[in-house]
Amino acid sequence: MTTDESVPETASRAWFAGGDENPPADRVRDGDADTPADWPALAVASGFATDDENYYAKLRDTTVEAARAAVDERERADDRQLLHAVRAMDDAERVANELAERVAEWAGTLFPDAGTGVDGCHDLAARDSEGPAEERVIALASRVVDLDSEADELETFIESRAPVAAPNLAALAGPVLAARLISLAGGLETLAKKPSGTVQVLGAEDALFAHLRGHGSSPKHGVIYTHEYVRGTRPEDRGSASRALAGKLSIAARIDHYSGDYRPELEAELDDRMRTIRARAGDGGAASDDGGATDE
């Protein structure tokens, strides 16, 4: 690159300028300019490009490289790892249960005392085979056991990583529900930008769309139903509990994304609000042991 003093000083701050350790792709991602400039002409004058066409070809290659680097960096972020982990956990559990049904049906023709479900597969996997058919059933049961174990290990991973990626969200929702909310939203940043009303019904999209088409009532909660503060509250108060929880979860997601510092007062505020909601019932507002007769 030329060092001709006639080259405008603006070019020395351009994305294509040399003289520092940052590659052009990094300068495209992180750089800025105080005022607009004729960048193709500056690039030609500085010796970076032979003409305008050559400049734009190099610009395209550099921006593509910068975009790829940004995508790679984003995919390695903690919240993205949680997203993939919780989806993998759900897939492992779903496939294990589906395969366990097949194993139970087949094993019932070979072992009169064969159990059912994933637990039944654990028992079958410990047996010795006495023929080709039994060998295949036992091998299939072993695959179910492996998937079940993998789901448990993924849950352990989520429980260890969620408090790092989203400390406030994990504290309020629990690690698995926090990861599930991040997954449903498509990332922590996206979740942080959603209003609390949307967070409240994440996971209930089918019911929401049915309501919008006039085919059902508006859902009061989505996946946050699994939280004890919703599931464990009597049915008539679950709407209020869902709104209270979703409001704090929205705030937690924003703090986690924009600052990352842990705010224990959020938990205290949520606990206080839930005590008020549950106090509406003479027994404290808790649902019955089966979680209440009505799933709103």
Results as ranks from 00 to 15, higher is better:
204 A>W: 11
213 R>F: 13
217 S>G: 13
223 V>C: 01
237 D>M: 14
156 T>F: 00
183 S>C: 05
171 A>L: 09
180 R>I: 00
183 S>V: 01
223 V>D: 14
232 G>V: 10
159 E>C: 15
189 E>C: 00
185 A>G: 11
172 L>Q: 08
180 R>G: 08
177 L>Y: 05
167 P>K: 06
176 V>Q: 05
200 Q>T: 04
209 F>Y: 10
164 V>T: 13
242 S>L: 09
165 A>I: 08
182 I>M: 03
194 K>S: 12
218 S>V: 03
231 R>E: 12
245 L>K: 04
215 H>C: 00
233 T>F: 11
188 L>G: 05
243 R>N: 12
168 N>M: 06
215 H>T: 00
190 T>Q: 14
224 I>N: 03
170 A>W: 09
175 P>S: 10
200 Q>V: 00
207 A>N: 03
203 G>E: 10
222 G>Q: 13
233 T>K: 10
154 L>H: 05
152 D>N: 12
186 G>S: 08
209 F>L: 13
202 L>H: 10
228 E>M: 03
220 K>D: 09
158 I>W: 08
157 F>G: 00
178 A>C: 08
213 R>C: 06
222 G>T: 12
192 A>D: 05
248 K>M: 15
203 G>C: 07
221 H>C: 11
172 L>C: 07
176 V>L: 02
243 R>M: 12
155 E>C: 07
163 P>F: 07
190 T>G: 04
212 L>W: 14
208 L>C: 01
203 G>P: 05
208 L>I: 02
211 H>N: 13
171 A>T: 15
216 G>Y: 04
215 H>M: 03
170 A>F: 07
177 L>A: 08
189 E>I: 01
247 G>V: 06
230 V>T: 07
196 S>W: 14
243 R>F: 04
204 A>Q: 09
173 A>E: 07
165 A>S: 14
231 R>G: 01
165 A>P: 04
165 A>K: 06
160 S>P: 00
222 G>E: 12
176 V>D: 01
182 I>W: 02
196 S>I: 01
241 A>F: 11
168 N>I: 07
152 D>M: 11
186 G>H: 09
226 T>Q: 15
243 R>I: 04
222 G>M: 13
